[in-house]
């Protein structure tokens, strides 16, 4: 298993609370927005980056109640995080699975 795959598994496992998951998808959207705003207004980029940290750290502190994934895998966490968000269509897939499961029961 590659380092990235290991870090990804760790990232997925440490983001199981639905609210924390929502906050991290939001964080990833803000991170993308921050990159785009860099070409328009650096201050908006700064605001976006501040919010990414507020949402990500807040999600772990108040909902997931564990340490953020970057503590263990600092080098690749942003990549695993984005990979996870794209894989799950920024939360749409999780919502889809949730409602399917409810219907089944």
């Amino acid at each position: 298993m590659s380092y990235f795959q290991e870090a990804k598994a760790h990232f997925v496992a440490s983001h199981q609370n639905p609210i924390n998951q929502f906050l991290h998808h939001l964080t990833n959207l803000l991170a993308i927005a921050a990159v785009i705003y860099l070409f328009y207004d650096w201050r908006l980029t700064l605001v976006c980056l501040v919010f990414t940290q507020v949402f990500a750290l807040g999600g772990h502190a108040f909902f997931e109640k564990n340490e953020p994934a970057f503590v263990k895998y600092p080098g690749v966490t942003i990549l695993t995080s984005l990979s996870w968000s794209f894989e799950n269509l920024f939360g749409l897939r999780q919502i889809w699975v949730y409602f399917n499961r409810r219907q089944a029961t």
């Binding site: 290991e6 598994a9 997925v12 496992a13 440490s14 199981q16 699975v97």
Partner: peptide, 19 residues
């Protein structure tokens, strides 16, 4: 739970880790 899930994903995970 996190460690347990991580090992499950590492051993059995794929593109759909939600399940």
């Amino acid at each position: 739970l996190m460690e347990f899930t991580k090992l499950m994903i590492q051993e059995r995970g794929g593109s759909n880790n939600v399940n």
